[in-house]
Amino acid sequence: MKLKGVVHKYGANVDTDAIIPARYLNVSEPGELAGHCMEGIDGEFLSRVKPDDIIVATTNFGCGSSREHAPIAIKAVGISCVIAQSFARIFFRNAINIGLPLFECAQADEIEQGDELEVALEKGEISDITRNKVFKAEPYPDFMLQIISTGGLIEYTRKKIEARGSQ
């Protein structure tokens, strides 16, 4: 599966209060959460973002609170994946669980705002079309790839339980 989109670039320590402030935690509709995505860090983001775009950041993306509303808002606004040099661990699990692909890539800092990227999901290969460069992301453990390809942890668990029930 290939993801293709334009880059929105951020620096280090983009926290979950920046991605979605706590005052929106009572919002359950993903579309409505999307309407406040990145509000705390980038007032222009919503007017710029297009479906399939890609967020790129440096280190510790998604640090702070455990709120799953953060990856939900990012996914709902149409972002196809997030690439960073490193992710905070709770955000990492949350994104996988709701089916938002993340890529940990040491060279993420070489990707710039507005670059066009093509990402091969299974291979973890990131092609920067604008710069004519190819970067490699950390591969996922097998069971995590399964969670992503099934569409998240809820689906994955449901399928596992069904499979057990039918044995």
Partner: peptide, 23 residues
């Protein structure tokens, strides 16, 4: 716990860690 500060209980020697809602 679905809260990042679940780590507090580590003070009592519990492996305590925060996760998101789905986990």
């Amino acid at each position: 716990g679905a809260d990042s500060h679940t780590v507090t209980a580590g003070a009592l020697g519990a492996f305590a860690t925060g996760m998101g809602s789905t986990d």
